[in-house]
Amino acid sequence: DEVFNSTLVNALGMYVVKLEIGTPPQTVYLQVDTGSSDMYVNDADNAYCELMSYGSDYASTDNYELTATFTELPSSTISSEAYTTLCSYWGAFSASNSSTFKYNDTHFDETYGDGTYYKGTYGTDVVSLGNITLESFSFGVANSTENQAGILGISLPVGENTDSLENAYNITPFEYKNFPMALKSHGKIEKTAYSLFLNEPDAHFGSILFGAVDKSKYSGQLYTVPMLQAFNTIDSLNPGMFVTAQGVAIVDSDSKNKTASEVQFPVLFDSGTTYSTLPTGIADAIGKIFGGKYSSVDQGYIVDCSKVNNTQLSFDFGGFNISANISNFVTPAKDRCLLNIEATDSGFVLGDAFLVDAYVVYDLENREVSIAQASFNDQEEDIKIISDGVPGATTAPGYYSTWVYTPGSPIGTGDFYNISWTSYSENSEYQTLIATAIPSSSSSSSSSSSSSDETTTKNRN
């Protein structure tokens, strides 16, 4: 009934690579996803892209006043070309316009952790990146999706959607050479491994180095830990390159540690996730250290902004720690800040907010991950080829102290920070912080009503 001034929240952004597909080449930008294994491109003719082109999604904005902020990017990153649809901004693929594309009559139907999906058919075509060409490369063309961009999944082949289509399409599970595997089979790299460097949060470019390590991009020691076998088999419900997190601590500006948890849990370094999802007990312990209140709608803790300055979120992965600036996880909103750590009971992920401060080497063949603290010193490249082990990496002291699956228990045993804490999950005052970030002066809501915090005493797990 009245004008409501809404703020569009910048979801940090996503990390993409540019590829050329087909003959003649069609340009697509694909989200780099270490949490999935298939490459999908949007079919230029899919219904979602057509819908977006007609703008019907915007018909309901009549009652909103939209504001936007534009940030200039280097001229080399975005051309001045006018994009007629959001899908064409990211690049969509027209199979009929490629003389070398072949459908292989295998369907895919993949849903991700955020509920988005791609459905369509696999096919093969020429894929090129720079001066490298991969002939007859397998990927999916999505004719049903609500994602504007395609995706480049570079995880283990066991995570390919072809392994989970038996019931839906009566397809015998099989694996194909996904992108990192194809690079090796085409002789472009010696081992199916790659190093991810997202660079500083404000940087426009990072890099992914297939088949090598750049020693100039990290500081300190590069430690190796094993991928967890429970997530590496065809029977795994949630396949992926999970490793064991052994503990979590907050380190303030005086280098004083506050241990949040010494509980083992499996976690994925996922470039396709913006923030993080952690076990509820551990997330609550972190939230409590900052005096936060959990908002299930905002998927994070509402905190005083002053409490999250000059602080690091540090993870122990087995005798060594990797720390990320807590500001990477923070979204300022209204007069408070949202600490974007989602509490969950399964599927624990450290996303871009953590990965910007980490240098991660994924060794898909040896099923190991090597991790170091990222370095932003802009030193000259020092690239070493991965031919057997990862150059410069040493086995972590806690290599063999891995999380072990126990039926019914998603995490290990141990102590949380302060075994009693306050659960704020239903705190109504902050349930929709982001949605009401800048309410109109005339608006009123029940959110101003007082709420009582539910206090729950938790026992040791």
């Binding site: 979801a11 996503m14 690079l183 790299i189 180095l209």
Partner: peptide, 28 residues
């Protein structure tokens, strides 16, 4: 040279106007 280096470009996510909240764009 036995390695392939790809620049990874950080692009702003265009919010999906059809979605019901920010939660839809937080994780994949």
């Amino acid at each position: 040279n036995s390695y392939v280096k790809l620049p990874v470009q950080k692009l702003a996510n265009i919010p999906d106007m059809d979605s019901q909240g920010a939660s839809d764009i937080f994780k994949r």
